[in-house]
Design a protein around this nucleic acid. Structure first.
Lengths: 337, 337
DNA sequence: TTGTACGCGTTATCAT
DNA sequence: ATGATAACGCGTACAA
């Protein structure tokens, strides 16, 4: 294993000179030695030992990314939203010269352990966290933390990235209204804990009330998985719910809904219009192409990393709670009536 | 920051005693002190500094996972195969008490740098590597490396995980034959470099020849993206290729093919049967459900990690080149004729 | 401009 | 069973 000492010996200088060359302290070394040392470093393929550097500098250039799994053994990366977002985050971390250490976490304590074990400079939490967990993490971690999609507080106590869920619900519903629909269903599970869905619901309600469509339908309460979507589509097709359009609060759920409806003779968009939420990349591979509310996942990932890096570098942070915009993506699952 | 020294002081023992307790050297410490020290460790929430440990032990418990991207800025995790597989690998690494450091790599040198920087104990390469790259990595890395899906050598020079592509092509084609098809197309790009597809092609040829179907069709040469699939389906629908069934060498490609055929009036499976390859998890969300050759991605990931760990622990490795089995998954895109 | 001494937190070795 | 010391590779502070 090659060390600073080896390079120093080869170059006939001290270890510190080499170290200074590597760390770009140009004022401390003459041009000639810089070039000579750099050549040797290249020729011998020397790479600094970052473990040792971390130890000495109390900073690791390591960023931990956590994604929570409820069930042990579960592969959370099967969720296209998670993997899309993670990919963007990894890219941003790398391009900023940091390293990504990733862990699926079942027990919050494990995440804290990892951060302390590796002296990580910061961490990003990919999945919705309870307020208790956010408190817990913040209490026991010295490094900055960024929470994505944890919308259980409106305060600026934490560094958070979220999207404008209410706007999403609003423009989705409004779009359906503009296309002539009056009986518009809201499909999603309105449990208190899942405030993301609740926000989307608020947007739905706002659009409906603005349009004077007071008798909106909210009976379609279901989880937002593909399977639940199928059941939901089935229910709608069997006319236990009388709607011409549905705002489905997640893409996979919406895709299931389309399928469930189809299986029961209700074709989308001819007989039923559907708007989803997320614009998952896998939507590109499904026909009919889902009309949906697009989260700019790429932007979200980059912003999360930028926010974290600002905190790590102790730069001033003008906004601790970033709300990303959403857009309607017009495709094939809404029909004008 | 809590260190061994702090714990030692608190417990009234030396650092080495604490270290021995942590590392479970029971023979070196009395039961009483073990328990006393352990209690203090728990109470104070001490966690060892793994950077320091790595430095002292010359082992990091860090495993690097590399996935290559051709284009910079590209989010490779959008590929469901990559993210599925990565998720399985991360799970296996974690459950074995190791840590996952992940990097998308454009330049092979970057991967080597990372391994040396962090003194990683081993690495897994997720994407197909050229023989040159495999040589390069092996030459410059001291730690064990496992290559997944790099099938450009049949020798045991490297630790590799692959699947039985030929068998996959064989059983896919045979299944179509058993369903009464005679005009069966092979759709995939038979470039020399992509030997995975070539292997699948060999299986196709074998099945066709066994059945005495000599006039098989191989004109459908395309890349295996979704977009290419659409074009391919279009071509088939327009009868420039006269087939009743197609073996499409990748799921996304197959899904595109189904869609392209449909857009041109050819319904799957009524008018055209299709078998894909991979059994991506996103297939669960697409209708009609693709009949396909299933790679057990979960198994593949676990096996890769197990193989790597054996190498890291210098255990005996009976098989350096592991070929995973494939299976036919019967679903909805093949019709009996 | 360059070099020396020391500390970072841990483990291995050798005493006690 | 327990402890003192050196070493791991690098950076900071200061001396030359």
């Amino acid at each position: 294993m090659l060390t600073l000492k080896d390079i120093a010996k080869e170059a006939g200088v001290s270890v510190m000179t080499v170290s200074n060359v590597i760390n770009g302290k140009k004022s401390k070394v003459s041009k000639q030695t810089i070039e000579r040392v750099q050549k040797i470093i290249r020729d011998l393929h020397y790479t600094p030992n970052l473990n040792a550097r971390s130890l000495a500098k109390h900073e690791s250039r390591l960023i931990a990314v956590f994604v929570s799994s409820v069930v042990a053994q579960e592969n959370v990366f099967k969720d296209p939203y998670v993997s899309d977002l993670f990919g963007e985050i990894e890219t941003a971390i790398r391009q900023n010269g940091y390293y990504t250490i990733i862990q699926t976490v079942e027990d919050p304590q494990h995440a804290i352990n990892l951060l302390q074990n590796w002296q990580a400079d910061g961490a990003i939490f990919l999945s919705d966290q309870t307020l208790d967990n956010m408190k817990f993490y913040t209490e026991y971690c010295q490094c900055p933390l960024v929470f994505i999609d944890s919308t259980n507080t409106k305060k600026n106590d934490y560094l958070t990235i979220e999207i404008d869920d209410k706007k999403g619900g609003y423009i989705a519903t409004k779009y359906l209204i503009e296309n002539g629909h009056k009986k518009i269903g809201f499909a999603g599970f309105l449990d208190e804990k899942d405030s993301v869905i609740k926000e989307r619901y608020k947007g739905y309600v706002k659009a409906m009330e603005e349009a004077g469509l007071k008798k909106f339908i909210t009976q379609i309460q279901r989880g937002t998985s593909y399977e639940e979507g199928i059941k939901c589509g089935e229910e709608i097709a069997k006319r236990s719910v009388d709607v011409t359009a549905v705002f489905a609060t997640a893409d996979l759920f919406a895709l299931g809904l389309v399928e469930g409806a189809k299986q029961n003779g209700l074709i989308v968009p001819e007989s039923l219009s559907v708007v989803g939420f997320d614009n998952l990349s896998l939507c590109d591979f499904v026909s009919p192409r889902l009309t949906t509310i697009s989260q700019d996942i790429s932007h979200k990932g980059r912003v999360a990393v930028e926010l974290l890096l600002k905190a790590i570098k102790k730069e001033e942070i003008e906004c601790r709670r970033i709300v990303c915009d959403v857009e309607l993506e017009e495709y094939q699952t809404v029909r004008k009536i």
